[in-house]
Design a protein around this nucleic acid. Structure first.
Lengths: 321, 321
DNA sequence: TTGAAAGCGGTACCAG
DNA sequence: CTGGTACCGCTTTCAA
């Protein structure tokens, strides 16, 4: 670039990076800075990281489904915290890419760390990423993956909490909503399994209820509610719970007398319905903590992989259960 | 890499890219592929784009505020459509970066195209990006920026629609909710301005109402509702509308008799309250169309910048207004 | 204090 | 058909 500033490329590099091992005279610095400003010079990240052999890019797949305020908040916090540690966070739009293939696509960018929510990345995927220079791979999933750090997001606990609550309040015929929308299985199945486990060995019964996030679907489900003979339902999350509760009420069912309803995520909107919606409050890991984990892993890539359980789940009992 | 496969780098390149201008013998291809598989070889995107002088990366800033299902859907669709056109979509976590500074950070990655929702990127930012190789810069904002293609998302129309509707139904003392949460000004201010414009020269009055997305804030606002003397309110969006409507009802106000309420975004959840929430349905551009615009712009970087108005707004009249 | 030169991992031309 | 080689933009010794 600014050899047109009268100096060599090396000098430019020194000046712009404030290289401490080298002293550059003030006049020269000034000329370099001036020229850079003038030409609108921007360093070429690819060239830099090619030469350096590493980057400070932390990559995570972009969510392909609408995420709630909880998760959005978490991502923002994480980006902010990693930004403070001088990492660049990049969400890769991996629409349609699967497992190994996705891992390969990510590896092409040679990120220093990869954060993967959900399953879908096997041990081979992790190995591939590590071979291509990722000094840290962190999964946010129900179970750990060989070779990667793991933040265990145990959605089973959410189901267990909800089921324990309903059972403790005397409910025995318990329905569990399973959303029909694709891409939610990663959450809905563990939550369902959690309910199942909580009810194991008790006198309660569990009924799976398929429900799409549309009024018609809820109305259809409500129409056959009496024949279902359920006295309570864990509705996957607050949004599905709100939808279903409204349909049940329109069908003439009394909440919670005839049927108790509980959701999850503790959305503000759930408090607006009457009766106020009971819910399972979920606590995600703090973005700061995860950022620190990443940073530690990057600095100490040989260290044993850490596994932390990070999903807090507590029942918030309001009026619908 | 697989010079350890017994061939030269060049040959590897030919084989893995299926270079048609060159014929490689089957045995050689096989050995290369075998070695690549064995070593878990992944090409180095930085090296490739350094050499090529360009990449196929489309960059957009990651949203820093929780976005609704509407926008999430739009992003997904866009990623999918661009993926089909063989672009790689990357969301850059620009937490805290502003205008020029953000533009510089993005430019370091030398994306072939940049998509920027919202204002904050000035003409200099656009120029900077173009100078560093971006063949297309597209803004999604209320107004066009010199040098960039523009998808005009005219949120004023949302406010106008809502105001026209309320006015047509005989309301004259109209409140407009302005969220207190930071980062929403890009939407809330134009919506407010739209209401103002719609009411200009009529006998209606406009009152700004500051509201945070918390129950307490809504309760406080509702408590002074009677002294405000409003007969209707445009509540920014459906979520704020739901929150406020509930608080008004708890305060003893009848909806819509005493106060008409209208939101925006046409969320499913708005239909669950009673009375069912009136709303302004918003139509975002199709991801496919935007992807095509980007592709066209990339292939024809010299062409004049296009400006399209892409935000459809129509009132959905339900029971709260 | 500054400059010359090597090299990061690919691609593309040209010679063998 | 295949290998040598120059080069993309930047950092980093090493010499001047």
């Amino acid at each position: 670039m600014a050899r047109l500033a009268g100096v060599s490329r090396a000098t430019v590099s020194y000046v712009l990076n404030n290289t401490s091992a080298v002293r550059i005279s003030e006049p020269t610095r000034r000329r370099v800075h001036a020229a850079a400003k003038e030409l609108g010079y921007v360093p070429h990240a690819a060239a830099r990281s090619l030469r350096a052999g590493h980057s400070r890019m932390v990559l995570m797949p972009a969510p392909s489904i609408p995420v709630g305020p909880l998760y959005s908040q978490f991502i923002s916090e994480l980006q902010w915290a990693l930004g403070r540690l001088d990492y660049t966070v990049v969400q890769y739009g991996s629409v349609g890419l699967q497992g190994e293939e996705a891992a390969r696509a990510w590896a092409e960018l040679r990120p220093v760390a990869v954060l993967v929510p959900g399953t879908g990345l096997g041990p081979q995927g992790v190995a591939l990423l590590r071979r291509s220079g990722a000094r840290a791979v962190v999964t946010l999933a129900p179970e750990a993956v060989e070779g990667a750090h793991a933040l265990l997001m145990d959605h089973e606990r959410v189901g267990r909490c909800a089921a324990d609550h309903l059972y403790a309040r005397g409910r025995r015929r318990i329905g569990v909503v399973v959303p029909e929308e694709a891409g939610l299985e990663a959450f809905s199945l563990p939550r369902l399994a959690g309910v199942r486990r909580a009810l194991l060995g008790t006198d309660a019964t569990l009924t799976e209820l398929s429900l799409a996030f549309e009024e018609q679907s809820a109305i259809r489900l409500a129409a056959r509610w009496r024949e279902l003979g359920l006295d309570s339902v864990f509705a996957y999350n607050d949004e599905y719970a709100m939808l279903l509760m409204r349909a049940l009420q329109d069908e003439g069912l009394r909440i919670p007398e005839d049927t108790a309803v509980i959701g999850a995520d503790d959305l503000l909107l759930g408090r607006l319905l009457r009766p106020r919606l009971s819910t399972v409050h979920i606590e995600l890991p703090s973005g700061r903590d995860l950022a620190e984990l990443v940073d530690r892993a990057v600095r100490e890539p040989g260290a044993a992989t850490e596994t932390h359980t990070v999903l807090g789940a507590t029942v918030v009992h309001r009026d619908s259960s």
